[in-house]
Amino acid sequence: MQLTEIRIAGFGGQGVILSATILGRAASIYQGLFATMTQSFGPEARGGASSAQLILSESPILYPYVTQPDILVVMSQEACTRFMPELKDGGILIVEQDLVRISALKPNTRVFSVPATRLAEELGKRMILNSVMVGFFTGVTQLLDRDAVARAVADSIPPSLRDLNLKAFSKGLDYGLSQSATVAGGEFEDVAYLED
């Protein structure tokens, strides 16, 4: 795997950090890759916003921060607006479709949408939306081995909620596998480049 930069963002309570932790754990512990996860602290983390940066690579990761994500996962409108300008051209955008309305895109962005909250609610617990999102991420990006991610989900969740989260993971995964990307075209709206 080439060095892949991922940002996951939303608001507090959506399991943003946990999602990044699960993916990082899957990569580093079960797939022998290198993974570096950092959370956003400081002004970026205010107002209930939550954001995690995850870098995956086959070789040791040196620079600790995401500079231009290859993959951006957004679970809130604010996160989408805020981080979209960072996304690499031709990158992948994953959105919580009920919470985010895409109004601007970079060219060649491959967009995947999932009603993660709704799918979680169908399973009976809104708070497991992060496992749905992790499953969906795994399905659409094909970046990580699904068994590795499932094990990382199991590791990261207390026993009483483990089965439910694994179900949520599978549901998200299946949903992801059934999707094909929408490639962004002419609706690109120029946004100022923000340096990290």
């Binding site: 932790t21 570096t36 959370q39 602290f41």
Partner: peptide
């Protein structure tokens, strides 16, 4: 330092 303290790795 803050980065090393808050950075998660294997």
């Amino acid at each position: 330092d803050e980065v090393v303290g808050h950075m998660t790795e294997k």
